[in-house]
Amino acid sequence: MDVGASVIMQSDSECAEDTLPSMFWGLDPVHTVFAKLYIKDVLELKKSRPIPGVFFYKTHPITKVDILGTIVQKREREKFFNFGVDDGTGVISCLWWKKQRAMENVKLASSSFGLNLLEQLKRINQLEQSSSQLELGDIVQVRGWLRDFRDQREVNSTSISKVVDPLFAAQISRMLELPYLYRNFYDKPFEMQKDSPEQNAFSQQGVQTLSLQRKIKQFLNQNGVKNFYQRELEAIDSLACIAQQDRDCPSTACVSKQIHEVFEDAVCALQEEGVIFQKVAGPSELYLVTDEEKELHSVTLGIIRDDSTRPKYVDKGCPFLHIMSCVRHSYSAGVSEATVQRVLDRLECNSEIVSTMDRHYTAS
């Protein structure tokens, strides 16, 4: 790899998630709740490239939403209903799996003492019937997980409830609540508290690692790098200067140690994202770039094409865990879950495979 003459170009627009390392996302309270957003903003959320299913409103990582709107479209499929919900700012598709609620509530009833199971099953059937009876013009509150399917943003619903509201109290309440939430939470960047020198140092190290991590990704992408050793990256001045924590340190050995440690953290983080991986594990072994490793893509696609025709997978497609197990057996035992997921996302983006439901995949 000719890395000595390569230069990293500064991106004109920084990704939203770059402002906070992924290890700190769980500290942001917006990340853990069903975020109440305008549908227009839900449709415009930036997608996190390294971690599927995570989206960003400004600096806030979001995985699930709570929306209130009117059903303007309804389509029924064999296994689910697809409702188009409009809140006046936009329309988004909301999926409701027909058997989803029944299975979850059966588990709940089975684990609850003192409840009549038959009564619970009757209530579940009523719930399913009420969900299928939602019609155009009904006002509904939808909660669910966000996902992109074939470049279309949609909500994989965990609950859809009809709002009987002749006085529009729920809509007025939502209209008053949303500006407050935007003003006091969503539009404000999340800031970590820095109460001690140890926390300050840890935060600084995390931000530095994130910055280097982002620059390495830019470098690998811009130069079409297929593989590299960590020591090769450490020799690039434009990367090494980012990793140098204490610029006033008089000791060359101290500076070299700092640079090496930050590079280790950044490379480890890239492995956790699935951006890079090691076919043969080891501290000084070769790192492969997932997006450029064509053999891995070919093996994964071959597994899905062959196995999705088997009777047990022909309806739903191959489950993710099955694909990962086969990839580890056929290609390398060291391939991580994140790496396999990144390959699947790339194959789906290229329309070579289709995700059918909850991490099941079939050849297109």
Rank of each mutant, 00 (worst) to 15 (best):
E264D: 02
E198Q: 13
Q208K: 14
L27P: 00
W97P: 06
K74P: 03
E272H: 08
R123H: 01
Y229R: 03
V155K: 03
K294C: 14
Q171D: 02
M1F: 06
V340T: 15
P189S: 13
G334F: 12
E348W: 15
L45K: 07
L344R: 14
A281G: 01
S364R: 08
L181D: 00
D12I: 10
Q171E: 10
G334L: 05
K294Q: 14
Q73P: 00
L344A: 14
G69L: 01
Q218S: 14
S196Y: 10
S11D: 12
D265N: 13
Y229L: 05
S132R: 07
A170Q: 00
Q218K: 15
Y331C: 11
G302E: 06
V33S: 01
N350E: 15
L321I: 10
D291Y: 11
V85C: 05
S332W: 08
A235S: 12
I124L: 00
K316D: 15
D18N: 08
Q100P: 08
L286S: 03
E232A: 12
L176I: 01
I323M: 11
A235H: 04
V327S: 14
Q213I: 05
K36S: 06
L108G: 00
C326N: 14
I71G: 07
E292R: 08
E337R: 15
E232V: 02
L296T: 09
E285N: 07
I62C: 07
D87C: 02
V3R: 00
R153P: 09
